[in-house]
Design a protein around this nucleic acid. Structure first.
Lengths: 170, 170
DNA sequence: CTTGGAGTGTCAACAAGGCTGACGTAATAT
DNA sequence: ATATTACGTCAGCCTTGTTGACACTCCAAG
């Protein structure tokens, strides 16, 4: 397996960012940063007896209103049983609406209610605040690099989902 | 709350990376990228009846050999009961050694056995392979930005842990 | 020497949120 | 008519997080 410990050959110092040590630091940065990334919404959700799973569902329903259950399943990468448990509580609590499809009546189209939109706003405001601070601190060039590396890190199917959302969203 | 939807005022286009839409794309990039980031080790661990928690413990014991349980607790951000359950199975399976401290015999110093080192190597090779590919694809400047943003995203205590590991490690 | 407290380990009980498998129902496709 | 798709649901299991309670070892202060 590729060692990469000492890139002293051709390319040399240009490849310093590919040493094992640099890669390990990248891993740890991802680990600690992801903790920070989820910390603020987690605090809000705890009070409401919801979890990260509810946040994810709310986020992507808001992002793609009218999406079907199956589509959401693919984006979130969980089983329908897992998603359904979350969805059931969100519908029962009046945050999400499930409408039978007009063309294909087997499908359910998911929307946020006003209450759902309010919670989504609360959660994304909290998360955006931290992200905004981090982006501002790091600067535009760093942000461009950040996005570039994250995109390259995704699985191909996830990259496709991400790109699709990017188109529809803005 | 700060809207940021249309940064048309002073600063203008320089702040395009701080629009709500850009921030939302940043969130989604984190979500999808983190999935990719953990996918490869997860596959290996599944076969061994271990989970991500075992991976994290192994990683940081390898990173700081001889670390105490309490120190590991702070880094991982879980309760001692959670960590102890994981540690117990790793010790029982002969991957981790727990040695009573010489100075303070209350403390247990944790080390990987040869088998533990082998697994750590296997896991980090898998994770590094993906990271290396992503870093290579994105280029050195992007990697620098990636690190900069992630660091700014951490909680202060986490940033301290990260910095401490960075010093000792490389 | 006794006592208080820190560091550690362990037991029990519980919850969130993943998973699989099986089954039912309605609607669509073949 | 039959097969397939989309969805919901029940039951059961796993990992990994949580609290609370308790015991043990050891260090240090009184």
């Amino acid at each position: 397996m590729a060692d990469g410990r000492a890139p002293t050959g051709i390319g040399g110092e240009n490849l310093l960012f590919l040493t094992d040590e640099q890669l390990r630091q990248g891993s740890e940065a991802m680990f600690f940063a992801y903790r920070g990334f989820t910390a603020d919404p987690d605090r809000i959700l705890m009070d409401l007896a919801y979890g990260r799973a509810h946040h994810r569902a709310i986020h992507f329903i808001n992002r793609a209103p009218g999406t079907t259950v199956n589509n959401l399943l693919n984006i979130l990468g969980v089983t329908k049983q897992s998603l359904n448990r979350v969805l059931r509580t969100l519908i029962a609590d009046g945050l999400v609406e499930s409408k039978v499809g007009r063309n294909d009546k087997r499908e359910r189209h998911l929307h946020l209610t006003d209450a759902g939109k309010a919670l989504e706003r609360q959660l994304s405001d909290a998360q955006r605040a931290r992200l905004r601070a981090a982006f501002r601190e790091a600067g535009p060039e760093a942000v461009a690099g950040f996005r570039k590396v994250l995109e390259a890190m995704m699985d191909p199917e996830m990259r496709a989902s991400y790109a699709r959302l990017r188109e529809t969203g803005g």
